[in-house]
Design a protein around this nucleic acid. Structure first.
Lengths: 208, 208
DNA sequence: TAGATTGTTAATCGATTAACAATC
DNA sequence: TAGATTGTTAATCGATTAACAATC
């Protein structure tokens, strides 16, 4: 079957694709043009069988005997993940984490561009942070609608996170990367990913 | 059976415990003393049955009819996750992310304390960052062994991450929280958790 | 051609859910 | 007591692995 399988793909597979993509881009940077499920698996710590199965959900991107052409597979994964374009994102909360996100060089070439940054502290509003002027969080809804922003990174204190998330959702945001150490409640159709260093650390201490 | 089940607990369960713990601590802050698997499930977005099953792996911590005593369950989860103590951690790489980690207030009361910070840039070494003096990455092995550090947060450029990880492992580190956008290769018995905002974002764009 | 590696199937393994007796 | 909610079992559902024909 020449695939283009539009069936429902499990989220757990979608979650692994960015990891494959990242590894492939690093191989490409090194000037390597071809890889195998075996080699890729060793790099990312996933079995070769699983990598082949994951990739084959979306088409036949490899060649028997030779493996995968890296630049071709990168293109396909970028298409699938919809990072064959540049998404404009906003950052809310200009504390240390917000600063780091505003300055982060790693978004370039990976599908994202910080468009605006926000804070609700009058001392910070209007200030320049790198190329950005800090906007007032009060103007969030207006500005997000105006620029049709779909993705936000939330770096406000835990106590403000849910109410800011509510505003983001109301303004049309569909994906939130949440740095506040709190579980957010959002409506169906809105996605949240959590980055909490403590949660990640606590997941490892069990084994120490 | 009065449990104390020393069987092998699946890692996927261990991964959910810090999320439960975080939610319980927030409920406790609000002055709430009791909760149910139902309520907790709504907060964290996990089914009540699964929460009961996860918790019951470790003992009978609830009461039929009334649910779980929050402070008791917090204690138990802290024990299980070994965050009933304070782990000293180090930060390597004093760029924006390293700065944010060095300043992060969220470690207190959640089991971690930043003990030392490192960078390999001669301009940064010796500088003061908050309460910390920046040490030279060259002295990493010595200092980590001396203080018996087991946990490191890695915030160096991708090109340096693997070699620094190798040094950490050699010095006895058993858990690495990696902020560099690269898959690390580490020996059996060493754990790595990955925090890469782009990977998390790419996991959501698929659905947009 | 011989060797390598994919895509895919079937078998295995593991995780989640539904349901309910036990009991607070 | 009546109502609520746990802990646990069995059933279901889903993910991973092993194996190999196809084929480059």
């Amino acid at each position: 079957m020449t695939s283009m399988n539009a069936d429902k793909i499990p989220d757990i597979i979608i979650g692994r694709l960015p990891v494959y993509l990242r590894a492939l881009q690093r191989l490409a940077e090194k000037g390597i043009s071809t890889t195998s499920s075996q080699e890729l698996g060793e790099i990312v710590g996933i079995s070769a069988a699983q990598i082949r199965k994951d990739i084959s959900q979306f088409g036949e991107f490899g060649k028997q005997g030779t493996g995968y052409a890296i630049s071709f597979l990168i293109e396909k994964l970028q298409d699938i993940l919809k990072v064959d374009r540049v998404w404009e994102v906003v950052v809310i909360g200009m504390g240390d984490i917000g600063h780091a996100l505003a300055h982060y060089q790693g978004f370039a070439n990976r599908g994202f561009h910080v468009k605006m940054v926000f804070d609700n502290d009058p001392k910070k509003v209007g200030e320049k942070i790198g190329e950005f002027e800090v906007y007032n969080t009060a103007s969030l809804a207006e500005k997000i609608k105006q620029h049709k922003i779909k993705i936000a990174m939330l770096a406000v204190p835990a106590s403000d996170a849910q109410s800011v998330a509510d505003q983001l959702v109301k303004a049309g945001v569909k994906a939130i990367l949440n740095y506040a150490p709190i579980s957010l409640t959002v409506p169906e159709g809105v996605r949240v990913q959590y980055i909490d260093p403590v949660t990640h650390l606590q997941r490892m201490t069990y084994y120490l």
